[in-house]
Design a protein around this nucleic acid. Sequence first.
RNA 1: GUGAGCGUAGCUCAGUUGGUUAGAGCACCAGGUUGUGGCCCUGGGGGUCGUGGGUUCAAUUCCCAUCGCUCACCCCA
Length: 429
Amino acid sequence: MIKAITGTKDILPSDVSRWQYLEKLLRETFQLFNYKEIRTPIFEETGLFARSIGEETDIVSKEMYTFKDRSETSITLRPENTAGVVRSFIEQSLGAQQSLNKLYYIGSMFRQERPQAGRLRQFHQFGAEALGSTSPLLDAEMIQIAFHILKNLGLKNLVVKINSLGIPEVRENYKNVLRDFLMDKKDKLSEESRKRFETNILRIFDSKIEVDQTIMKDAPLLIDYLDTQSKSDFDVVENYLTRVSIPFEVDPTLVRGLDYYTKTTFEIVSGSVGSQSALCGGGRYDLLVEELGGKATPGVGFAAGMERILLACENEKSLNLPADLIDVYLIRVDSNSEEQLDVNLKLDLEVANLASMFRRENLICEYDYLNRSVKAQMREANKYNAKFVVFVGGDEFKNGELNVKNLANGDQQLIKIEDFEKLKSLLKN
RNA sequence: GUGAGCGUAGCUCAGUUGGUUAGAGCACCAGGUUGUGGCCCUGGGGGUCGUGGGUUCAAUUCCCAUCGCUCACCCCA
């Protein structure tokens, strides 16, 4: 048997309504905040990701789906979508058409990691990017949008974490401070963190290993070394969130794994999923557009994992979606014996014709394609949650009538076939 | 890439201290006086016990390998 590739999942009809519910909420929310949808290709030239996310990051160095196409171009399935959006922004000169672009996207992303709860190789993210303003109001707005969506899904177990990484000079300066602090403690760090000491010293804060954590507890914090602009921007974010009643905590150790972040970074984590608890993460990236060859343009954005969000909804039982139902199930009455084949064929056409008349009236309807007994058809109607069944056939039909049954209360009544208006209004009630 | 756990019906799982035809519940199909559902009752279909090899008179059960799934680490959404 051919199976789906490791880390990919079928979204079956039985769970697709949850996805559609989420997608509808997303589109409504982004519309409310006046963000426009952008759809960029699912693969890009490999260099785009290497340059934006950072060569040394885990995503680029070991998680990308990269291959060569027939013209030997190195292609990568997008591991995230900020790079693609920024590429499009530059290539299509979106910045020349308006000074601020507020964009959102929904789509599949790909990373080759070991799957686990809340982590797949093909997964779905939605996200937003605002390009063209350094205003910290937008930083806070990103958090607000994400929070608005999660709250509207009924999620409770949420924590908003924010931090500021400052401008590059500040960060470089701080790295030296941190290096000095760790110099004599270096040997006590875990092997992994000793490696980070060389490659990306800030990430040592992320370590879950106890020895690292005890050492880092007394480490100097970047947030205390911020430049005045970063500091005051961060204050605005805090004040905004407070003003709009979004609870948050400042987490000075929140260092995100993508190289392009500057100033504000944030994450919303849920206690209702497994250990991959970040539902959403983002931050400001004021230098990225220029690094990718565009005119210097500040930006801020976030991305959220849809599987993780739906997992949280499931675990908190926060979504109560109405069951699918249909308006009418048409039942072909009469024998299915051999000598009646002609009659049945005629009735089948009557049923099909009635179905198309109903559908023209926007009534969701269904009938039997398997030549099953009346009883089986009734069971089917029940399974589909039909509001009504209409019996087609028998003596009533010979008399030009249809027997209409309300499945909720069992009431039946005969209606003349010519009186379609009456039939229609009964079924539409 | 590393570690742990698990692979028996479409699904959730029993079971076999190695021994003739491998079970349940749910789901599916049919029937319950031939034209009426949900509940209930009866019956039915469906399994190379993940795959390959080994030990044995005999393996679904023991051993090895392999593949897959799950969770965790790393990292991230």
